[in-house]
Design a protein around this nucleic acid. Structure first.
Length: 884
RNA sequence: GCGGACGUGGCGAAACGGCAGACGCACCGGACUUAAAAUCCGGUUCCCGAAAGGGAGUGCGGGUUCGACUCCCGCCGUCCGCACCA
């Protein structure tokens, strides 16, 4: 019995598809299009099986939609800028460009061996000037439209590597590579004004009904809209600048009343503190103001207050790590200033600088109402500040209500609050908002958690930011005619820091305005910049412009996007923003780039550790005679958790090894069959073996009887005998069910149904009249259904069944609705909720007849014991429920 | 702390509110082999029983219903995301 020869077969069909240009997409106005896209990879090296799960799913969708008659666009490319290339250059004396293109070459050939139906004529790599020149132009347009700007910002700075680190690259307050303690630094950075679209990005989430709920929720929380008010607190007490501050008043008593009206005459533009609050209703419960350590007022006060300066420096040192933040207690430092309560000028509250106030959110300053905010309460207890309740919980008595260790944050009735007394919290919010607006002491407003996107990176291997710094003219955009600003090739990585900065000539240019000596921007774009528009480039990948409008109009939006949930916020939000920004600049007419999104689960594998605690690759672990695991030297091996495949834990299975051993189709079917696609999948040797056996079984089913089958296209003989007619029904039911499953991304179930079909075909009694014709019909259906999953095997089967063309070009099968339904149904019979038997009846039998048949069952008679049933429920074609 | 997902045999998993465990992995028994592999046939939720049959059973406790893995309420556990957001 010959095994299926996947090696020759897969190579053969891949060659055919390529030579025929099967998967090259062309715009065809009027023909329905379908754009399938998997998140394009970073070319990091070689692929392991975990990498290709989402491509396998995308390919299934592409081939399935193609069979359904859609004009399918299914492209592939490379997210080719990024840190690993630079790190490889630092470690291995190889140029990032060479390292990247070698990885692309290797990974492209791996993807091609998998037989994915990509339109390779549209392949792109984002590190090529033909690609990134267009985003330089976009940036200039954003700049002109005020969607890009430069500002000073606090960033994570690694003092050893001399670069800014992303938040993800800071682990426990230290740089992930250098181990140096990361500092907060104020640096001039380029930003994209994503916050200009906060509301749009939030509101449009509702329209993305083919996105996972989870992802929409994550974006909603990330944007973090909250309604509240800005409130102005006039400053009382000596202001620092100008003139320089004078001796500070005694800190502890400063918060009390009776401070006179020393500061009142000086209320003006700069002599107020503006706070943001979502609870303006609790304004009468205010007992302090807290400023962020980075608040301008805190900074200027620190200039003359060594204690405060030291406090702020301490906050900067500890400010980055989440673990530290969680452990850190709320601390503050009393300033020399008090603030005047905006609704009651006789009241003064002390101004603190506190480590828990973020400069990036709201106004960088808050008022503290300890009675109704847990954080404020903790702070107040520590610094012995007053706790003034103003919201009374239902059923409480104002005279006796007191706050213990827990702030009261729920709704209630306002008291001790002048005009708000007796109001509910929502009513009080409205009332105080109006009052503040009348007084000019504040306004209702909305705050967002979303911040503008900082895109500057002090790195070489990225897209140069096309601006020039001129000592006379300031920041000057590179003229469009001078684009692209290309990266210089001759760079060295022998020292830390950005090679562009120390390149002898590259950054020195003449100012485009005044022609005097000036310098290029040496920062490069965050690599999320490239991935924010690549899906547009694919629509016309070779266009001299960023993208051809007509092509974008035809192909966009992406109908089905597939990728990991790790991009739920970053890439997916940036792309949504980018599309809107491009629309704003007149590039296209589209709001949402991705109509459908699917986030697939990860591929996991058992981990192994040697005696000495080192991770071992699966292929280094063997089982000895006693069934114990051993490493290559025979030492015992312990098994760890099953985790996501990753190089660091070595629990990876190389794609090449699997394709060499079992072929691409076997790997593809395993990735689709073993778990629901959104859930994690565990890769096991036994699992892939099982699929390999099935592949061979399928092949035998077609290759062995092929010669004895009636030729293709013969009409089905009428009056099939029982046992054959049933199988024919199974075929049509399977086609209907698999189609439905594929539509709903239930790939594992679709595979199970196809296996049921092949089981039924094998069990069909041979030699009966019509058996050959039904077997042919069944095998052809199975071949077409399996085509999107195992395309090479399907082509080979299709050919063996005597067909001339490609199964890839064959239309998707349609079930005969009459055959897809059973004529006879099995109806379950319950007595008191327990199954007692089944009855077989013609489909849609009359309820009375069904009831009669059910009550006649001996088991039912026994349970009724001669009594009449209290009640009988008949559900057509399903169940009879008898209540005894 | 907030938000979300999940919890079903030894394992991966199925199940419009209607026969729980389809399909597969693993395992057990058998056939074919000198033998092994491959292949084929049969079995496999648990308990009682030789069998027929009976009982229990979808994390735990309640509820709705003729009927609940599925819906509602309250717990427990696991995983993921966000996290001093005022």
């Amino acid at each position: 019995m010959s095994r299926y020869n996947f090696r020759e077969t897969e190579a053969k069909w891949q060659r055919q598809w390529r030579e025929l240009g099967c998967f090259e997409a062309r715009e065809a106005p009027g023909r329905p299009k379908y754009y399938v896209l998997e998140m394009f990879p970073y070319p990091s090296g070689k692929l392991h099986v975990g990498h290709v799960r989402n491509y396998t799913m995308g390919d299934l969708v592409a081939r399935y939609r193609r069979a359904q008659g859609f004009n399918v666009l299914h492209p592939m490319g490379w997210d080719a800028f990024g840190l690993p290339a630079e790190n490889a250059a630092i470690a291995g004396n190889v140029h990032p460009a060479a390292w990247t293109s070698e990885n692309i070459r290797a990974m492209r050939s791996q993807l091609q061996r998998m037989g994915f139906a990509y339109d390779w004529s549209r392949e792109i790599a984002t590190c090529h000037p033909e690609y990134y020149r267009h985003e330089q132009k976009m940036f200039l347009d954003f700049l002109a439209a005020d969607l890009a700007y430069r500002k000073e910002s606090w960033v994570n700075w690694d003092p050893v590597e001399n670069t800014v680190l992303a938040n993800e690259q800071v682990i426990d307050g230290r740089g992930w590579r250098s181990g140096a303690i990361v500092e907060k630094r104020l640096l001039a950075q380029w930003f994209l004004r994503i916050t200009a679209f906060s509301d749009e990005l939030l509101d449009a989430l509702e329209t993305l009904d083919r996105w996972p709920e989870r992802v929409r929720l994550m974006q909603e929380r990330w944007i973090g809209r909250s309604e509240g008010a800005r409130v102005l607190f006039p400053i009382a007490g000596p202001l620092p600048n100008p003139p320089p501050p004078l001796p500070s008043p005694s800190p502890a008593s400063g918060g009390g009343k009776g401070g006179g009206n020393a500061g009142e005459g000086r209320v003006g533009a700069v002599e107020v503190v503006e706070v943001f609050t979502t609870r303006p209703d609790t304004l009468y419960g205010a007992s302090f103001i807290a400023l962020s350590p980075h608040h301008p007022l805190a900074q200027s006060l620190a200039a003359a207050d060594p204690k405060l300066a030291e406090f702020i420096a301490e906050c900067d040192r500890l400010g980055t790590s989440e673990a530290v933040i969680e452990a850190a207690e709320k601390r503050g430092c009393r300033t020399a200033l008090d603030a005047i309560h905006p609704l009651d000028p006789s009241r003064r509250v002390p101004i603190y600088v506190a480590n828990f106030v973020l400069m990036e959110y709201g106004t960088g300053a808050i008022f503290g109402c300890p009675a109704h905010d847990q954080r404020d309460l903790d702070f107040a207890r520590k610094y012995r500040l007053p706790v003034i309740p103003v919201v009374l919980p239902p059923g409480e008595d104002a005279a006796h209500f007191a706050i213990g260790d827990t702030a009261y944050v729920e709704d209630g009735t306002l008291f001790d609050s002048d005009f708000m007394n007796e109001l509910s919290v929502p009513a009080a919010k409205r009332a105080v908002g109006e009052r503040l607006e009348q007084l000019g002491s504040g306004a209702r407003t909305i705050a967002y958690r979303l911040r503008d996107w900082g895109v500057s990176r002090q790195r070489y291997w990225g897209c140069p930011i096309p601006v020039i710094h001129c000592p006379d003219c300031g920041i000057v955009p590179v003229p469009e005619a001078d684009l692209p600003v290309e990266l210089p090739q001759d760079v060295t990585f022998d020292r830390p820091g950005n090679p562009l900065d120390r390149h002898p000539t590259w950054k020195h240019v003449a100012c485009p305005c005044c022609n005097s000596p000036a310098q290029r921007e040496t920062d490069t774009f965050d690599t999320f910049f490239e991935s924010s528009w690549y899906f547009l480039r694919f629509c016309s990948a070779r266009a001299p412009v960023a993208f051809n409008r007509a092509a974008v109009k035809y192909w966009m939006p992406v109908d089905q996007y597939i990728g990991g949930v790790e991009h739920a916020v970053l890439h997916l939000l940036y792309s949504r923003f980018f599309t809107r920004a491009l629309k704003h600049c007149g590039y296209l007419d589209l709001d949402e780039p991705f109509a459908g999104l699917f986030t697939q689960g990860m591929v996991c594998h058992q981990t192994y550790q040697s005696e000495s605690g080192e991770w071992l690759f699966p292929e280094e672990v063997s089982t000895d005679d006693a069934g114990r695991l051993a490493d290559p030297t025979g030492r015992p091996v312990t098994t760890g958790r099953t985790e996501k495949m990753s190089k660091s834990k070595k629990n990876v299975v190389g794609l090449d090894d699997i394709v060499d051993t079992y072929g691409a189709d076997t790997a593809r079917l395993y990735l689709l069959s073993d778990s629901p696609p959104e859930r994690d999948l565990e890769w096991t040797e036994a699992g892939i073996e099982g699929i390999w056996r099935y592949v061979n079984r399928l092949w035998r089913m077609v290759s062995e009887p092929a010669a004895t089958l009636p030729p293709p296209g013969r009409p089905m003989p009428p009056d099939l005998p029982a046992g054959v007619g049933n199988v024919r029904r199974t075929i049509h039911k399977t086609v209907a069910a698999v189609t439905d499953d594929l539509d709903k991304f239930r790939f594992n179930r679709a595979v199970a149904r196809i296996r049921e079909l092949t089981n039924a075909l094998e069990d069909m009694p041979a030699g009966k009249p019509g058996a050959g014709a039904v077997l042919r019909e069944g095998l052809e259906a199975a071949t077409r259904l399996i085509g999107p999953m195992m395309p090479h095997l399907a082509e080979e089967m299709w050919q063996a069944l005597g067909h001339q063309g490609l199964v890839a070009d064959a239309p998707w099968p349609t079930p005969d609705p009459d055959l897809a339904r059973d004529e006879e149904v099995t109806i379950a019979v319950q007595v008191n909720g327990k199954l007692r038997g089944t009855i077989d009846l013609p489909r849609d039998a009359a309820a009375a007849a069904v009831e009669e048949a059910a009550l006649a069952l001996p088991q039912v008679v026994r349970f009724l014991d001669g009594r009449a049933p209290k009640k009988v429920v008949v559900v057509p074609n399903r169940i009879v429920s008898v209540v005894a």
